[in-house]
Structure formats: C-alpha cells, structure tokens
Amino acid sequence: MLSTFNDALNSERFIVTAEVAPPKGTDLSATLGDAELIRGLVDAINITDNQRAVMRMSPIAVGKILMDAGHEVIVQLTCRDRNRLVLQSDILAASALGIENLCVMTGDYTTKGDHVGAKAVYDLDSVQLLSLISKMMGGSDMAGNELAGAPSFTVGAVSNTDVTKRMQMLKLKKKINAGARFIQTQAVYDVGSFKDFSDLMDQIGPNVPVLAGIIPLRSAAMAHFMNNNIPGIRVGDEFIMRMENAKDPIQEGLEIAAESIRELRDMCRGIHLMPIGGHDNTQRLLEMAGLYNR
C-alpha cells in the first residue's frame, strides 16, 4: 500500500476506495469494524456526510478517528447542511485534524432523509465550493481575508456517467475547472456507456483520475429498486435476469461486480466501492476481480 491517497492518484496503479458510514449515535464500533474489514485492501476510505440526508456523526470527526486507527481517509463534504461560514470553518477543522482528502458534492435534499423539516442550506453549489477550497488553499477566505495558515487538500467531486445528460456533463467540466483532482462516479452497471463517459473525460479532464462507482447487487429486487429510485443508476435486463436466476444472489452480485471491474480496468484509474450494508464481502470481491494483493 502506498502511503497516501494522493500518492496513489499520482502513481500508475489501479486505485480502490471504499465508502464507510459514520454511526448514528456515539458508538463507533460498527464504523471501526467496517473499516477494519478493508484495512490494507483499499487506498482510502471515503466517509459519507449525512448520506441520503440521514443524520449521523460528522465525517470530519470520523475521519480523524479512522486516521488515528491507521486508515487513509477521504472526507465527504456536502453543500446541504452548511452555509459558507461553516463550510470554511469545517474545512479548516479538517485540515487541523490532518485530513488531506475531501470529496465535494451537492447533497441529497433534506426531504430524502430522516429530518424532513430541516432547512436545506445550499448556500454554495458544488462548483462554488470547489472554487472556495481552491481559494482557501491559495491563502484567503471567501470574503478575501487572508488566512493565517492555508489548508492543503486533494479535492475530488462526484458525477453521474450518462453522457446524454448534457447539462450534468457541462457541470462536471466546471467542477474540473474549479479544482476537482479526482472524480468519483455513481454506480456503473453498463460498461458500454461508461466508455462514452471515459471518452468524454479524455476531452474535458484528461489528467483527472476517474474512480468508477461499484455497488454489488444483492438481489433482483435491489436492482429494480435502484432503477426506479436512484438517479444515475441503470441496471440492465441481463444482470437482472442473472440475479433472478441465481441460486446464491449475493455471490452472483459479486460476480457481476467483479466482471464489471475487470472490464472497467482499462477505462478508468480505479473503483469506488459502495456496498450496501458494509464490507463483509469486499475482500472476496477484490479477490474475484483480481485486485487483492495488487
């Protein structure tokens, strides 16, 4: 394992990152346990920020705790819950705690989560937040005041991979221009259409590493659910049929994911794993995909 995520981005190797969720409550054992399952298997653990607008512990705190436990971390930062003051103070806090990697996104709307009456902030959008982080790294805050000590981060952003969504692709280009140094994508099930995305990235961000999102299927029902409810995800009929006919759907889902990863290897710089329910099968998946002991 290389020492930092940034080293991995600058290397030739195929990168693996994986998502871990903070706890809802003060008990960190499940979060630490999940991270432990992938120790040494991934280049960085990506910590979600009130994912799906469900309230959980701050990913900055969890980032520090996982770093203390010896993990390399990427902390997600959404625009949903923070105005420009708190975004900046959280960015400085992350820096002070030694966090070196951020992944910026708009954030699911509050009504998707468990506090539907919460004020949705969105003071900045993700492009503006990326620009702000670049500005802070240059030594000043958003208002132009000088910072006593500038933070330094490797900052990434997220994207869907459907190139027919022209407006989303235009925004992706803006994200890259605003300072995104890596792009993490929504889960990919259609390698053919990912190729189009990869070709587009060659034009708009040839030096920006793409980490293709991977969510192993667990059942045919899950595939249907995602198709109907998760924007940017499209599981094709062939995979759904394989899941329906599988004796062991979990194993079949892992096989599909491993096949996709093998096909994606030549089209992107790495993968970003977002398994539902934790990392019990992540080692097995990486073995099947030929990524164990890289």
């Binding site: 969105y122 407006m167 803006k174 924007p231």
Partner: peptide, 13 residues
C-alpha cells in the same frame, strides 16, 4: 430547490 447556479445536481430522474 437547491438553488444551484452552475447546473443540476445528480438527483433528477
């Protein structure tokens, strides 16, 4: 609803 000025979020279907 997110008052985005630089393009859509990834949430539209």
């Amino acid at each position: 609803p997110k008052e985005l000025l630089n393009g859509p979020c990834g949430g539209s279907m």
